[in-house]
Amino acid sequence: MTTRKEFLLKSGLLATGAVLLPSLTFAQKKAEQNLGVQLYTFRDEMLADARGTLEKIAALGIKQIETARSAKGLYYGLGPKEMKEVCKSLGMTLRSGHIALDENWANTLDQASESGQEYLICSSLPTNGQTVDNYKAVAEAFNKAGEDCKKRGIKFGYHNHEYEFESHNGEVLYEVLLNNSQADLVHMELDLGWVVVAGKDPLDYFKRYKGRFPLWHLKDMDMEKKESTEFGKGGLNIPQMLAHKKDSGLEYIFIEQEEYANSPFQSMAHNMKYMKRF
Score class of each variant (00 low, 15 high):
K30F: 12
Y119V: 11
F26A: 15
G73M: 09
L47G: 04
R69T: 07
S23W: 15
A58R: 05
Q182G: 10
V172W: 14
S70P: 04
G146M: 00
V195G: 01
S23R: 12
E85D: 08
G249Y: 09
K5V: 07
G234M: 03
H217A: 06
Y205T: 01
N169T: 10
N169L: 13
H244Q: 11
A141R: 11
K219C: 00
L54M: 15
A58G: 05
S70G: 03
T127L: 15
M188E: 06
K63M: 05
N160M: 04
L101R: 02
L20V: 07
W216N: 00
S267P: 02
E224L: 09
A15H: 13
E258H: 07
L8Y: 10
F206N: 06
K150G: 00
D191N: 08
A68K: 04
E45D: 13
A106D: 15
E140W: 08
A15T: 15
I154M: 01
E258D: 14
V197K: 04
R51C: 13
L173R: 07
I255P: 00
P80Q: 02
G79Y: 03
T16M: 13
Q257T: 05
E224I: 09
Y76L: 00
S113D: 14
Y274Q: 11
K276E: 13
P126H: 09
M46F: 11
N160D: 04
E224T: 11
G116Q: 11
A15D: 12
D247C: 01
S124D: 10
K136A: 11
L185N: 03
S267R: 01
M223F: 09
G116P: 12
H187G: 09
T127W: 15
S167H: 15
R69W: 04
L9E: 14
G91M: 03
V138H: 10
W216F: 04
T25P: 06
L178S: 07
Q266H: 12
A18P: 03
P214R: 06
E230V: 00
S70I: 04
L218Y: 00
V138A: 09
A243T: 09
R208G: 12
G211W: 13
K273A: 13
L178Q: 11
R51H: 14
K56F: 05
S23C: 12
S96E: 03
A243M: 07
K219T: 01
L20Y: 04
D184W: 03
G73V: 07
K72Y: 06
Y163W: 08
S267M: 02
V19M: 10
L203S: 07
M46L: 12
Y174D: 02
R152K: 14
K246F: 01
D247K: 02
Q240C: 13
G232S: 02
L35I: 04
H187S: 10
K63W: 08
V138Q: 07
V86M: 05
L192S: 02
D184H: 11
T229N: 08
Q257L: 06
S123A: 14
I99K: 01
E171H: 14
T127V: 15
A71Y: 04
K136R: 14
E166C: 12
G77S: 09
K136S: 11
Q266R: 12
M268E: 02
I65R: 03
A139C: 03
